[in-house]
Lab assay of single mutants.
Amino acid sequence: NQASVVANTLIPINTALTLVMMRSEVVTPVGIPAEDIPRLVSMTVNRAVPLGTTLMPDMVKGYA
Rank of each mutant, 00 (worst) to 15 (best):
V45C: 04
V5M: 01
R23T: 08
M22W: 02
I32H: 00
G62I: 04
G62F: 09
A3C: 04
R23C: 04
N1I: 14
G52M: 05
M22N: 01
T28W: 12
S4D: 01
M56S: 15
V49H: 02
L10W: 11
N46G: 07
A34R: 07
S42A: 13
M21G: 03
L55K: 00
T53V: 11
N46K: 11
I32M: 03
P38M: 11
V6S: 02
A34S: 12
N14P: 01
P33Y: 09
S24T: 09
N14F: 13
T44C: 05
N1D: 12
E35M: 09
G31P: 01
A34W: 11
Q2V: 13
P29Y: 03
P38I: 10
G31L: 01
M21T: 03
V6C: 04
L10T: 14
L10P: 13
T28A: 11
I37K: 05
A64Q: 13
R39K: 08
E35C: 06
T15G: 06
A3M: 14
K61I: 08
G62E: 12
V5Y: 02
M22D: 01
M56P: 01
D36S: 11
I11H: 01
M22L: 09
V41R: 06
M22P: 00
P33M: 08
T18D: 08
V26G: 05
N8D: 13
S4A: 02
V26C: 04
P12A: 14
I37L: 14
R23D: 05
V20F: 15
V5K: 02
V6A: 03
A48V: 11
E25M: 12
S24D: 08
I13E: 15
V45Y: 00
P29L: 05
L17A: 00
A16E: 08
P33C: 04
L10H: 13
T9D: 09
P33W: 14
L40I: 13
P38E: 09
I13W: 11
A34P: 08
E35D: 11
I13M: 14
T54I: 08
L40Y: 02
L10Y: 13
M56C: 03
P33T: 07
S42N: 13
I32E: 01
T54H: 03
T18V: 07
V6Y: 02
A3W: 07
Y63H: 04
L17E: 00
G62S: 07
P50C: 05
P12T: 12
D36L: 12
R47K: 12
P12G: 09
A16W: 06
M56I: 08
M21D: 06
N14Q: 09
G52E: 04
K61Y: 13
M21L: 06
P38D: 13
L40W: 02
G31S: 02
M59H: 07
A7P: 01
T54E: 01
A64C: 05
L19I: 08
M43F: 08
T15P: 01
E35Q: 15
Q2T: 15
M56H: 06
G52N: 15
T15H: 08
V30K: 08
A34N: 04
V30H: 12
P38G: 10
S24R: 10
G62W: 05
V49D: 02
T18P: 00
L51V: 15
P57D: 06
A7S: 11
T44M: 10
M43L: 12
I11W: 01
I32C: 03
P12Y: 06
V41P: 02
E35W: 15
A64S: 11
E25R: 13
A16M: 12
T54V: 10
V41I: 11
N8M: 10
P29W: 03
L51Q: 14
T28Y: 15
A64P: 15
Y63N: 04
R47M: 10
M59T: 06
G52H: 09
A48P: 07
R47P: 03
A16V: 14
E35N: 15
R39Y: 15
K61P: 15
A48R: 14
M56K: 08
V5L: 03
T28K: 12
D58V: 11
M59A: 08
T54C: 03
T53Y: 07
I13G: 09
V27N: 03
M22G: 01
V20Q: 15
I32G: 00
D36V: 07
L40E: 00
R23L: 05
D58E: 12
L17D: 00
L19T: 15
V30F: 11
V20N: 11
S42L: 11
V6N: 00
A7K: 02
V26D: 07
D36T: 08
D58Q: 13
L40K: 00
M56A: 06
P33G: 06
T9N: 09
M43G: 03
Q2D: 07
V26Q: 12
A3E: 06
M43P: 01
V60K: 00
V20E: 11
V45T: 09
P33F: 06
D36E: 12
V45E: 01
L40A: 00
M56Q: 08
L40T: 00
V49I: 10
A34E: 10
P50W: 06
P57R: 09
G31Q: 01
D58G: 12
V60T: 01
I11Y: 01
K61N: 15
M43W: 06
L17R: 00
V49K: 01
S4H: 00
R47T: 15
E25G: 10
E35I: 11
L10M: 14
V30P: 11
T53L: 10
V49S: 02
A7T: 15
A48K: 10
R39N: 10
V45W: 00
K61D: 11
T28F: 09
M59D: 13
D58P: 08
T28M: 12
M21A: 05
M21F: 05
A48F: 13
I37H: 02
V6R: 04
T54A: 06
I11S: 00
L55D: 02
V6Q: 03
A3N: 06
A34Y: 05
A16S: 10
M43T: 05
E25H: 11
L17T: 00
D36K: 10
L51P: 09
M43A: 09
I13S: 13
R23F: 04
P57A: 14
V6F: 02
A64Y: 06
P33V: 12
M43Q: 08
L51Y: 10
A7W: 02
S42T: 12
E25C: 05
E35K: 13
V5I: 10
E25Y: 07
D36N: 13
V20P: 12
A7Q: 01
P57F: 07
V49M: 05
V20L: 14
M59G: 03
L40F: 01
V30C: 03
M59W: 13
T18Y: 03
P50H: 12
R39F: 11
L19F: 11
D58L: 07
N46M: 13
N14H: 14
M43V: 04
S42Y: 10
M21W: 03
V20Y: 07
V20W: 10
V27R: 15
I32T: 01
P50G: 13
N8T: 09
